[in-house]
Design a protein around this nucleic acid. Sequence first.
DNA 1: GCCAACGTTGGC
DNA 2: GCCAACGTTGGC
Length: 135
Amino acid sequence: MNYWLLKSEPDVYSIDDLIQEGEGVWDGVRNYQARNNLRAMLPGDLALFYHSNIGMEVVGMVEISTAAFADPTTEDDRWSAVGVKPVRKFKKPVPLKVLKSDPYFEDLTLVKHSRLSVMPVTKAHFDAILALSEA
DNA sequence: GCCAACGTTGGC
DNA sequence: GCCAACGTTGGC
């Protein structure tokens, strides 16, 4: 079981959009490192859902429902997509500001490499963010 | 709206 | 294969 963080601009695709759909396709990734992370995902893996630009906070948790397949938004077979299902939306989202101000998260990729859109998260960090969402 | 960080492209 | 130019992302 692996843990991840998925980043999306909410005015393009938000956690509410995913909840409304019931199941979504995480596509449109055009970065090799992010794509490699998508390809390492397995059904049942859990991911945090982060809203970039607007909100700038971790807003919920999702589950990977389908392992990587060809990205349907392009003919180019270099790119991959995965299926995702909502698990829950946080009552109390966890702002980037909080993660940045806590030394515990200084190695979190979201903090260190803010441009990567699909990244692995350690179980410890994952659990700590869940705990903050309930604090 | 700006700009730093970073990835990609293309000329050499 | 290097690197300058350029485009994009995303925080501020």
